Amino acid sequence: MSFHGEGRWNAAPEACRYGASKLAFRGPKRSLKSEYVAFIGGTETYGKFVSRPFAQAVEAATGVACVNLGQPNAGIDVMLGDPGLARIAWGASAVVLQVPCAANLSNPFYKVHSRRNDRFLRAEPSLQGLFAEVDFTEFSFTRHMLMHLRTVSPERFGVLRQGLAQAWDAGMRRLIAEIRTPVVLLWFSERAPEQDDDTVETRCEPVLVGREMLAGLQSHVVAVVEASDMAWGGQGAGCHPPYAAGRKEDVPRTLPGQAAHDAVTEALIPVLAGVLDP
């Protein structure tokens, strides 16, 4: 699979801001004065390392302005923590919400950075009590911590995972309710929801989210679009370990390439057509 922009890894896409939001988004900037669809999500929605993310491709196919509100490494905390983002969603005719992972959110066990949700800040007393032998000052990222905790005790990790699932479900229900606009839930992953939903060792997002959790939100959204089992970053199907820092040639293995974004576009177009023109 070819990557648009391959070899131009340091070329950052145009950044823009909307209204009162404190976040910077991927441009080009779109007008919010006429009909538009808002796309909220993480690294995949942002479209890192591709020249035409699926939001832009949907706009080209439908003629409806599509506002890309994706944020790299964003979790539920970013999506709920910016009032300006909510106001943009309120004005949209529809919102495409990418399913976020269950690891990068503050919960009763630990806290994450308010904007870089993949960054671990501190363990709460409940987690310290559950894993008394662990020194949590050693961790800077949620994934690293979860991988270690699962190795220490799979049984106690199960307790933690259940707590994360509950926090994720509550956060997603609140987020969907606050959007106040028809929501299309997008599963954009290398795996199907029922596959490897307990995996933390790979970058198969959304981590610790599976079919049962997705089904719990079905009645709160107008549609669920599943885009999975597609070629991913030019390496074919299957999950890949995190790339080594500084090895830019390995980045495509962990992120969707242009063909994957185009597949999501094809899946979204008929669903959005039904939402926008019932």
Rank of each mutant, 00 (worst) to 15 (best):
D196I: 08
R150H: 08
V221W: 00
L32N: 03
A223D: 12
A237H: 12
R161G: 02
H148D: 08
I76H: 06
V58M: 03
H148V: 14
R161F: 00
F39M: 01
E155V: 15
I76F: 06
E205M: 07
G91K: 05
V58W: 08
G75P: 07
G158W: 07
R87F: 07
E35W: 07
W9R: 09
T45N: 09
E35Y: 10
E178K: 11
T202N: 13
L32F: 13
G246N: 13
A167C: 05
V58F: 00
R203T: 15
W168Y: 13
C16F: 10
D277T: 15
L32M: 11
V221A: 00
G81Q: 01
V134K: 11
R203G: 13
S140E: 14
G70V: 02
R143L: 11
V222I: 09
V99E: 02
S31I: 08
S34R: 15
G19L: 10
A11F: 10
A192G: 12
H220R: 07
K22M: 13
G47I: 02
E194H: 15
P28V: 12
G63C: 10
R8G: 06
V209M: 07
R115M: 10
G91H: 06
D198T: 14
L255K: 03
D135L: 10
G91F: 04
F188A: 06
T265G: 05
V224R: 02
T202G: 02
A215N: 14
T254P: 03
S93K: 15
S228Q: 10
A11G: 00
T181Y: 01
M145H: 00
N68L: 02
S21T: 12
V271P: 04
S31P: 11
T43K: 01
V264N: 01
T43V: 08
Q166Y: 03
D77V: 01
Y110W: 05
M147T: 10
H113D: 15
L185R: 01
G7V: 08
A57K: 08
F139P: 02
V58Y: 02
Q56S: 13
R116H: 14
A267E: 09
A60E: 15
P206N: 11
V78F: 02
G238I: 09
W168F: 11
G158A: 14
R161K: 15
R180Q: 13
R115W: 15
L217I: 04
G233K: 06
A15F: 11
L127S: 05
L69T: 00
A89V: 07
V200F: 08
S140K: 15
H261A: 05
S21W: 06
P270V: 12
Q128T: 12
L149Y: 08
I179V: 15
P241T: 05
A92I: 05
P108M: 10
